[in-house]
Structures are given as C-alpha cells and as structure tokens.
C-alpha cells in the first residue's frame, strides 16, 4: 500500500492520501496544476517535504534507486537514449529473479508490438510504438506502485484499449496505480478514487487521510 502523508508540492496545499494494493487513484486537474510534479515527488525525483510510505517503509529508509524500482514513475513523453529499445530496458537487479524473455514477449504481444521492434533503431519507430514500448519498460520489472503520467498520450483507440487492459491487469496483480490523465472517460474506466488538483489556495476535493499530526517516521497504518 502506498501512503502519502502531507507531501508538499508548492503551490499546492499539503496532500495526504492512501492507495491500497489493487487500487487506482486518478489525479485530475488542468494543465499546470501540478499533476506531474506530484507524481515525480512521490517517485522522489523531485524534492518535496512530507512522507511517502510503501507498506510502512518511508522512502528515506531505502536508497533512492531502490525506491524508484518499487515506485515507478512513467513520464508522458517516453525517452529513449540508446540505439535500440532493448538496450534501454532496465537491467535486472537480481538475475535469478529477472523477467524471463517469455514474460517480455507476452507483454509485447498484449501491446500488439512485434518483438523485432526491440532491436530496430529507436528513431525508426513510430510515436505510438515508442509510447507502448515505454509502458512495457515501466512494468517489466514488476514495480509495486505505478505512477502513470498520461500513459495513453498519442495512442490510437485500439492501442489505448490495450494499455488500459494491461493497467487493469497490474491492478488485479495487486499493484497500486496513481494515474494522471486529462481523459475523463479513461478515469471513469480505471479509477477507484479521485484526487482533484484545483487552483492553488483552494483545498483539493478528496483528501482521504485526515490531517492530524502524524508526521513521525515509521508511522504504521
């Protein structure tokens, strides 16, 4: 379970909420309302006051790379820095437990991607192919929490449906998902709870956790 306790992403007010295993929280709000920054702060890519717990362990208790292997942020615009997509997939932290090639092949098949794309120059791939490969890259090493920032941005309807099915499968497997999306219909299809980021200074509509002083480290839910 992901628990966010009074995280402070200026200029938003401190936000507290929990996302249970298998639960999807949608973060809504206009562009520039801080959706991406909230997701980045949870992944500890951006410094933010407050606490974030994964199953009672605070992010500061583990090294940041270990935290980001468990709490995975997937940006809207997928980035590729290698010649082929395969080289940019995360290196297996533990070879014995690393995802088998059949798991990757299955994932690519579910995304309607030809496995040969992995070894083609990334610059030859279409926008949609890069976007779907980035989704596969984000989930292949089984993170516990997925922070998805506009995961179907730039995808056609068929690909969008495929990605949504995979998000639902991740939820069934017990992952917590925080979804930032502009698409109200997509939020209706996927989200269990919502967090509205309104204009600064007005409080968000839904802050499930009460605002009592529970800022000590190691607080157990």
């Amino acid at each position: 379970m992901l628990r966010v306790d009074k995280i402070l992403v200026a200029p938003l007010p401190p936000l507290s909420f929990t996302v249970a295993n298998g639960e999807c929280l949608a973060v809504e709000g206009p562009s520039g309302s801080g959706k991406s920054r909230l997701l980045r702060a949870i992944a500890d890519l951006e410094a933010a006051r407050g606490h974030v717990f994964l199953d009672g362990a605070e992010r500061g208790e583990m090294r940041a790379p270990a935290w980001r292997r468990l709490v995975r942020y997937a940006a809207t615009e997928p980035m590729w820095w290698t010649e082929t997509a395969r080289a940019a997939f995360p290196p297996p932290p533990n070879p014995a437990r690393s995802p088998t090639s059949s798991a990757l092949a299955g994932l690519l098949a579910d995304l309607a991607l030809d496995p040969a794309l992995l070894d083609k120059p990334v610059s030859d791939l279409s926008t949609g192919e890069r976007q779907r490969l980035a989704f596969a890259r984000a989930v292949i090493d089984s993170p516990r929490v997925l922070l998805l920032d506009e995961p179907t941005n730039g995808l056609d309807a068929a690909s969008q449906a495929r990605v949504e099915i995979l998000i639902q499968r991740e939820l069934k497997a017990g992952r917590s998902v925080v979804l930032a999306s502009h698409d109200a219909l997509q939020i209706d299809r996927l989200a269990d709870t919502r967090l509205q980021l309104a204009r600064p200074a007005t409080l968000p509509r839904a802050t499930p956790a009460s605002d009592t002083a529970r800022t000590q480290r190691g607080w157990q839910p």
């Binding site: 940041a64 790379p65 940006a75 820095w81």
Partner: peptide, 15 residues
C-alpha cells in the same frame, strides 16, 4: 539539454 533522458533513467532505478 538532456534532463528528460537523465530523469527517465533515474525513474527506472538507475543511480
């Protein structure tokens, strides 16, 4: 210039 690439790698668990 390559802020997004660096952060994408960090997000995937890179040191």
């Amino acid at each position: 210039r390559e802020r997004r690439v660096i952060e994408a790698r960090l997000a995937l668990g890179a040191t």
